[in-house]
Simulated assay, not measured.
Amino acid sequence: MNGTRKETLERVIEWRRHLHRYPELSYAEKETSAFVARHLEAMGWRVRTGVGGHGVVADLDGGGGSGKRIALRADMDALPIQDQKRAEYASTVPGVMHACGHDGHTAALLGAAERLADERAAWSGSVRLLFQPAEEMPPGGAQAMIEDGALEGVDEIYGIHLWSQFPACTVHTAPGPLMAASDEFTLRIVGKGGHGGLPHQAIDAVAIGSHFVVNVQSIVSRNTDPILPNVISIGSFHAGTTFNVIASECRMEGTVRTMTPESRTHARARLEQVLQATCGMFGAEYELDYQFGYPPVVNHAEPTERVLSLSRERFGDANVNVCQPLMAGEDFAYYLERVPGCFLFVGAGNDEVKAPHHHPLFDIDERALETSVDLLFDLATKR
């Protein structure tokens, strides 16, 4: 599939828009996987499908001699969100959209794959591409791909995440902890229902749940080192049936984000202590289901310096930033627990494209795709 640089970038935009029109949820990326495999095979890559579910692994050797095997990863899954954009490439699947940029990740890695295949005589070593399913839904696709051998023989791994909150075509990363451990919990507070005018005869689950929502924030504000980033957010709260009935129970869901193993363990223990004390104060019972999700994304020093150096060389110092950690989570963390590597952000926002990730109006500045293709190519070939 030989072509000019311009033709490759035009195809990348076309691929991204196709994937945006036809998104697939985590663990259901059958057509996306087939789309990726078909294009890789046409480019001349050795392709293995069904890796860790719907994952695709592709290998290619350079013509310049032996060397390291560099792995590059893109995630493929979409989210259960209704697309509200008016773009001609808006999702055609009701209630499903690419609201986190994974369509761009997949398209950019396909673009890098095409360039790597076209120029294989000029680079040495080998490259492995990982097109991963199910990043958005724990336990995620990374562990399953690792178990299916995706990292066997890999010396270093790199991954790019398009980020709408950073200016388009800028590069952001840092050594050490870059993204948070992402844990989740579901809880049920059980009180005693009653008449809205006779609260003394009831145990009000709404009031108790509300106290817990406020009290649990003391873990962040008063029980953890203020230098360490920690987040506890309640995302769902459901209780009651009508205006004059005191609810007998309430249910809520939340997430806990931490950066160190110690903070992670402490937050879980302290959350249940606060829940137990709050319920005990009012005479209520509780059920707590707390699930540890992805670990923190911790970049390795040398690969991170390589990313920063190549980015400055390609894009200029003004467009490269050593950034602060973000409290979002990513199962790329599992790859970095096995082999050296670096995860990084490419800015994809502008004055018009600025909706946050996981928002129904999310979109990207497509100029960021070219930045991503260039950087992925450099990471694979400049040894």
Score class of each variant (00 low, 15 high):
M1N: 09
G3D: 05
G3C: 04
L9C: 00
E10G: 00
E10I: 00
E14I: 00
W15E: 00
W15V: 00
H20G: 01
S26C: 08
Y27A: 13
Y27G: 04
E29T: 10
V36N: 09
R38A: 15
L40Q: 01
L40D: 03
E41T: 06
A42Y: 00
V47P: 01
V51G: 03
V51N: 01
L60W: 09
K68G: 01
A71T: 04
R73H: 10
D77Q: 06
P80Y: 02
I81M: 09
A87F: 15
V93S: 04
V96N: 06
G101E: 12
H102C: 11
H102S: 13
L109Q: 15
L109C: 08
L109H: 07
G111C: 08
D118L: 04
S124W: 00
G125E: 04
V127G: 02
R128W: 04
F131M: 11
F131C: 12
P139T: 10
A142T: 09
E147Q: 09
A150S: 14
E152P: 05
E152H: 11
V154A: 14
D155E: 13
E156C: 07
G159W: 12
G159Y: 09
H161G: 14
S164C: 14
Q165E: 15
F166R: 12
V171P: 07
P177D: 01
M179A: 05
D183A: 03
T186S: 14
L187I: 06
L187K: 02
L187R: 00
R188Y: 08
G194A: 03
G196R: 02
P199S: 12
P199M: 13
H200R: 13
I208F: 07
H211W: 13
V213P: 11
V214R: 06
Q217N: 08
V220S: 11
V220Q: 08
S221C: 10
S221T: 15
N230Y: 02
S233F: 05
H238Q: 14
G240N: 11
T241G: 07
N244R: 10
I246F: 02
S248T: 03
R257I: 05
E272G: 13
G280F: 05
E285L: 04
F292P: 02
G293W: 00
T304I: 05
L308T: 02
S309C: 10
M327S: 05
A328K: 01
D331C: 07
F332Y: 02
A333C: 03
Y334K: 01
Y335T: 00
V339R: 07
C342A: 15
A355E: 05
H357S: 11
P360V: 14
L361S: 12
D363R: 13
D363H: 12
I364Y: 12
D365Y: 12
R367Q: 15
V373D: 07
L376R: 04
F377R: 12
T381M: 08
